[in-house]
Amino acid sequence: MNQAARPEPQRLAKRLANQLPCSRSDAESYIAGGWVRVDGQVVEEPMARVHDAQVVTLDAKAKLESLDAVTLIWHKPSGQALPDGEIVPDEWAGQLMTQATRFKGDRSGVRTLKAHLHKLLSVAPMEPRDSGLMVFTQNVGVARKVSDTSSQIEHEWQVRIRGEAGLQDDAERRDAIIQSLQKTVFFDGWALPKAKASWQSELRLRMAIKGAVPGQVVHLCKRAGVQITGMERMRLGRIGLAGLPVGEWRYLLGYERF
């Protein structure tokens, strides 16, 4: 005799909606909000399939809440390549933005959810060798404000350069480098925002540029006759690294503004 066919698994959202009961959209919100467990494990994908024998439970503290667009701050390590394109693949973000790499000092109170890593926009990307502050956001307004080359958002960099014989004691040469870095750059007939530059140490420069365009710092250093050995972005607008360890990330706080 043929055994009875095993029932087909059904979508988790449908199962939960029938079980509570509630609307399908509310079920999807509970699931995406990280409030639902299948056999004791949190499942955040409403489209996930479950069998009749599996136990589906809703957290006693569950509440319906909208998933607001989030912005993430990350301290990019040197050598870490960024994905091509403006939208970051969920898989790439999921590998780096984990609970283990979340900044222990994150004061946002936001629960880490997979939905927060969906369709993140990469804002003001950097070259693989560069390190420092990176921004990923689901908020199109934030992305436009930070990325727009005509914006007044200031990028602050620490630039390490290769040493030159006698540079430390050559005040005239050091002054000439700063003056060159602060001269206007023209691109396609347009004057780019001027850089503010100063020495931080013998082989370390601080540079700050409003509305910086990709490659501008490298071009300025090359024009000044200095060779870059490393670059770290310390700040974008009013948001800085502020003790965020290399490789770790945090949520942008509700009151923080670029």
Rank of each mutant, 00 (worst) to 15 (best):
A27H: 04
T229C: 14
R235S: 09
D170K: 05
F186K: 12
L64W: 02
R223M: 06
K114R: 13
D106Q: 08
L96Y: 13
M234V: 11
Q80N: 06
A224C: 05
A195Y: 07
R238F: 12
D90N: 01
V38K: 02
P245K: 12
H51L: 13
R49C: 07
V88E: 08
L72F: 09
L253T: 08
R11K: 12
I73K: 04
L236F: 05
Q95K: 13
G34T: 00
P83I: 00
A191T: 09
I161A: 03
N18A: 15
Q138S: 02
S25C: 04
G166F: 03
W199A: 11
A242Q: 13
A171P: 05
I73H: 10
S66A: 08
A81W: 04
Q152C: 07
E86S: 11
L117A: 00
S131W: 01
A81D: 13
G254H: 11
Q10S: 02
R238S: 15
M234Q: 15
V42T: 07
H75Y: 06
R162S: 13
W190G: 03
G105E: 12
R250S: 06
R223K: 13
G254D: 13
M97S: 08
P83Y: 01
P245A: 10
L82G: 04
H118M: 06
E202A: 15
H155T: 13
E154H: 07
Q152Y: 08
G247R: 06
G79A: 10
A4N: 12
S150C: 12
S25H: 06
W35V: 00
M234P: 10
K14S: 13
E65R: 08
G105F: 04
G243N: 09
L82M: 15
P77I: 09
L120K: 02
Q227V: 11
V217N: 02
R107G: 10
R173W: 04
A100P: 03
S201K: 07
K196N: 15
G247E: 08
C22M: 12
R6T: 13
Q152K: 14
V142H: 15
L82I: 09
L20W: 09
A197F: 10
Q227E: 12
L167P: 09
R15F: 07
L113K: 04
L117I: 00
R223G: 02
R204M: 14
T184I: 10
P77T: 06
E248T: 14
G94T: 04
K14M: 09
A208Q: 07
C22T: 04
D170S: 03
Q216L: 14
L244E: 08
D59A: 09
G40T: 07
V50W: 04
A242S: 15
C221Y: 06
A4D: 14
G243W: 04
I153F: 11
L64R: 03
E164T: 03
S201N: 12
L205Q: 08
E172I: 07
E202S: 14
Y30S: 03
Q200W: 11
R37M: 06
R37F: 00
E248V: 08
L113D: 02
Q168N: 12
Y251W: 02
A197R: 07
H219C: 09
